[in-house]
Simulated assay, not measured.
Amino acid sequence: MKRIRHFIILPLLALVTAGILIACATGGNSSSTQTPIRVGSKDFTEQFIIGEMYASVLEKAGLQVERKLNLGGTPVAQKALENGEIDVYPEYTGTGLLTVLKLPANSDQKAVFDTVSQNYKEKFNLVWLEPAPMNNTQALAMTTEGSQKFGVKTISDMAAKASELTMIGPPEFEVREDGLPGIKQKYGNFQLEEYKAVDAGLRYKGLVDGEADVTVAFGTDGEISAFKLIVLEDDKKLFPPYQIAPVVRQAAIESHPDMQKALNQLAPLLTNETMQRLNYEVSGKQREPAEVAKEFLQQEGLL
């Protein structure tokens, strides 16, 4: 009889112990039991930095994260989000409006955000969180000396002096609707002295070396602050706003309630000046995006 009890009690103890271990491993809402939040990004410097920031603040909030950075261009990142291959990535309001939704351009920041927010929710069940004040819109820039020499501070000024100016930029800018054709339509059918078509990475070198007077730029390019360039005012409001914000799957927000607060606290810190500086740390000083992101978040008290 004792031997029978022994054989019964030992398996029961084993079952109870296993049950306790399973309960400990699966109990509560611990992040260890949650599926990881998959953070994506597109394939350029600013996206790498901000993608790393998103991942880091989520980890700081106690959430598991899987990085899927450097996915490719907008169509690839958007499709990955729609298909549930990623849960969140940084996107620009202007890109959402023009490239994804294919809606008409609009220069009103709030109107653009409200439009993309509503349409993404209705079409894709995706949520736009708080946008940052930074605006990585297309732009034209000059050196301080060049701006003073020609008396050019706005795109209207540039159009008036166009016959004296050489512009440098990527080849597609000559034909894109939001490139030279769009500028001419909005600001008058001016004629530049010359347009130098170069690889995008050579634009700023050509400008500061004196090979051109005006360069095609984007609002948060690191070279703008590094070389103290003057961004020409888009005084006729041609270019739409390109504020950046996390775009998130609704299902991810529901399963990870803390992620919205963690990401929204970052938004106010991302200004044009901040992103110009951080972008140049990577593009100009060849530092790793993860290192630059971590250093910034530590300085701001988010890590």
Rank of each mutant, 00 (worst) to 15 (best):
A18C: 12
I183A: 10
T74G: 01
G96L: 04
G51Q: 09
L71T: 07
T26R: 15
E172H: 14
E122N: 10
Q34N: 14
E85R: 11
N125S: 12
E46C: 08
L140Q: 10
N70W: 06
N70H: 13
V231H: 07
E273A: 12
V198A: 07
A212K: 00
T220K: 00
K102D: 10
L13I: 15
V88F: 04
L229P: 13
L266G: 02
Q286C: 06
P171W: 00
A252K: 00
F239P: 03
G188C: 07
A162D: 09
G151K: 08
Q47V: 05
V16N: 06
S117P: 04
K161Y: 07
D157E: 08
N189I: 02
A23Y: 14
K196P: 03
V248Y: 01
A212N: 00
A132I: 12
E66C: 06
S117T: 15
D209N: 14
N272D: 15
F48P: 04
Q191A: 12
Y204D: 11
Q34M: 14
G51L: 06
L180C: 01
A217V: 05
P240D: 04
Y89D: 10
A139T: 07
L270R: 03
S117I: 09
T17G: 11
I253M: 02
I50M: 11
S156D: 02
T271A: 05
L192M: 14
D157N: 14
D43K: 09
V127S: 05
L71S: 11
R277M: 12
I49N: 04
D43P: 07
G40T: 13
Y54W: 03
D178S: 07
V248D: 00
L69Q: 08
T93A: 07
Q78D: 10
A162G: 06
D43M: 06
E194W: 01
R287K: 14
F173G: 02
E193N: 14
I168R: 01
C24A: 12
V88C: 07
K294T: 15
G40Y: 04
N279T: 01
Q138C: 06
N272V: 06
F150T: 00
V116H: 05
K186R: 14
A160R: 12
L202V: 08
V152H: 03
F190T: 11
V198W: 09
R277T: 13
V57Q: 04
A245C: 03
G62H: 09
P246T: 01
R203K: 13
G73S: 12
